[in-house]
C-alpha cells in the first residue's frame, strides 16, 4: 500500500475504530479493568485522533503548522490533555459520570491524538527524543506508583487490577526504552 493510499484510507479507519470503541459491549469490557482503560482504550482513542490528522484539509494543516514549529505546540497540548487523563479521578469519573465519558471520547482523540499526528512529522530528532524519553519516564513513574500503592487509587477498580496495570506500565516503559536504544544504536536519522 502506498503512502497516498494509506492517507486516503486513514480517516475511514479512524471512524471505524471510533465507532467500534463506542459500542456498549466493547466500552463496558475496556472499562471493566483499569489496565484495559488506561493501556488499551485510551491509546486506541489517541490512535483515532492521530489517523484523523491525515484527513485535515491541507490549507488548515498548513495554517496550524505556522503556529506549531517543530511540533512544540502539539506536544504542549497533548501533554496537558494526557496529564488530565492520567489522573485517577478522571478515570473514575469517566465511568460514573456520563458527561465525563463524553469528554473522554471527544478530548482524547482531538486534544491528544490529533495534535500528535499533526506535529510528529515536524518534530526533529531532539524533540522526538525528549518526548519519547519523557513518555518512558512517565510510564516508569506511574507504573511504580500503581504497583506499590497500598490504597486503591480508583474507587471503581480493585487493588490487584491496579497492580497489574502498574506492571504493564513498567513493561511498556521498558519496551519504549529498548526501542529508543535500538534506534540510537542502529537507526538512521534525518538531519533535521
Amino acid at each position: 500500500m502506498s503512502t497516498a493510499e494509506r492517507q486516503r484510507l486513514a480517516p475511514a479507519f479512524a471512524v471505524a475504530l471510533f465507532v467500534a470503541l463506542l459500542l456498549p459491549p466493547v466500552r463496558a469490557w475496556l472499562e471493566s479493568r483499569m489496565s484495559l482503560q488506561m493501556l488499551v482504550q485510551i491509546p486506541l482513542l489517541i490512535t483515532v485522533g492521530w489517523l484523523l490528522s491525515a484527513a485535515l484539509p491541507p490549507r488548515l494543516g498548513e495554517g496550524i503548522a505556522r503556529w506549531n514549529r517543530h511540533g512544540i505546540s502539539s506536544l504542549v497540548l497533548a501533554s496537558l490533555a494526557g496529564m488530565f487523563w492520567m489522573l485517577p479521578r478522571s478515570l473514575d469519573a469517566a465511568i460514573g459520570e456520563p458527561w465525563m465519558a463524553v469528554a473522554k471520547f471527544a478530548s482524547v482523540p482531538l486534544l491528544i491524538g490529533l495534535p500528535l499526528g499533526l506535529g510528529w512529522p515536524h518534530m526533529g530528532f531532539v524533540v522526538r527524543g525528549v518526548f519519547l524519553l519523557e513518555l518512558t519516564a512517565t510510564f516508569f513513574r506511574l507504573g511504580w506508583l500503581y504497583l506499590v500503592s497500598p490504597i486503591r487509587l480508583c474507587n471503581n477498580y480493585l487493588l490487584d487490577d491496579q497492580q497489574r496495570a502498574g506492571e504493564a506500565m513498567l513493561v511498556i516503559g521498558s519496551l519504549l526504552l529498548a526501542g529508543v536504544a535500538i534506534k540510537l544504536l542502529w537507526g538512521r536519522f534525518d538531519s533535521t
Partner: peptide
C-alpha cells in the same frame, strides 16, 4: 507564534488541571 501558542495552551491547560484537582 509557536511560543505564544504554547504559552496560551500552558496557561489554559494549567487552569483546567488546577480545577480538575
Amino acid at each position: 507564534r509557536t511560543l505564544l501558542a504554547s504559552a496560551l495552551l500552558l496557561v489554559f491547560g494549567g487552569a483546567v488541571l488546577t480545577v480538575a484537582t
